[in-house]
Write a protein that binds this DNA or RNA. Structure first.
Length: 250
DNA sequence: ATTATTCGCCGTCAGGGCTT
DNA sequence: AAGCCCTGACGGCGAATAAT
């Protein structure tokens, strides 16, 4: 299989043309079967289990742990060890502190002991940093398959950010998401905040989707290798049986 | 050494499917 | 119906590689 067959093929005219002109190999035929025959946006249904999506196939292999489940487990199981995730970068805004998950400076922990997630505490060794204007962001992600936690809309009224070097929370209580909006400026800020939240979620979803797809393609490649090996053995067995029959018939 | 092409990854948008 | 999630499509970017 070519290395980039289904990773992220750009559909520029040149590349589309190259694809359409390329010879249909066994691998590409299999992939077309796996991907092209899909009718509902999922792919891979023809290779493993026709009644199951590729994600289900992967789940059966135990290779995918849905992040949502990890979130639920992490936030509800107080006995569980705190997840090891990367440190966010903290920013100060006129509405409090928000953070950026791209920083990978240090480990941080989540204290979810507060029932109902009315508030929670993020501990980090990072000192708060100044930041350009940004909306309040109550969602944070953990990279590398660790966990995702979300809060910020709905019934969450506040949360806190504090430093582990201080016994008292130094964080800023965030604006209540349920507070009424009075001005067009506030409406604009709310819309902007929602957009940022949506983009952030989609960004993470896209990453997860691509990771699942890579995993799926890897599974397909392994499956192909196994089938090729199987085919080779069967061909050898057939050859042997044919020769045996020929000897007997003489 | 410079330029062109390829590759892989990312963020965003759009649209379909599912849930509430 | 609204909101959310998932994923294909698209364009941009930087690194690697090939061509000159």
């Amino acid at each position: 299989m070519s290395q980039n067959t289904f990773m992220d093929i750009k559909s520029s005219p040149l590349q589309v043309n190259m694809e359409s002109q390329s010879t249909m190999t066994q691998d590409s035929a299999l992939h077309q079967q796996a991907l092209g025959n899909s009718t509902n946006g999922k792919y891979g249904e023809d290779i493993f289990d026709p009644s199951s999506s590729y994600r289900n196939n992967l789940n059966e292999l135990g290779s995918i742990a849905p992040m949502a489940m990890m979130v639920a487990e992490t936030l509800t199981n107080e006995q569980a060890a705190p997840p090891s995730v990367h440190a966010p970068t903290y920013y100060n805004t006129n509405r409090g502190q928000i953070y950026d998950i791209k920083s990978e400076a240090a480990d941080w922990q989540i204290d979810s002991s507060d029932p109902g997630y009315q508030s929670f505490t993020i501990s980090t060794s990072d000192a708060p940093q100044p930041c350009p204007a940004f909306v309040q962001c109550l969602q944070y992600y953990a990279p590398a398959n660790t966990m995702v936690a979300e809060a910020g809309t709905g019934d969450v009224s506040a949360y806190q950010i504090c430093s582990p070097t201080s016994s008292l929370p130094q964080g800023v209580a965030m604006a209540s998401s349920t507070s009424p909006l009075h001005s067009s400026q506030q409406l604009g800020e709310e819309a902007s905040r929602k957009r940022e939240l949506r983009l952030m979620k989609n960004r993470q979803a896209a990453k997860e989707s691509r990771r699942r797809k890579r995993e799926y393609v890897n599974c397909l490649e392994d499956h192909i290798s196994m089938l090729e090996q199987q085919n080779k053995m069967l061909m050898e067995e057939l050859k042997y049986l044919k020769e045996s029959c020929a000897k007997k018939s003489r």
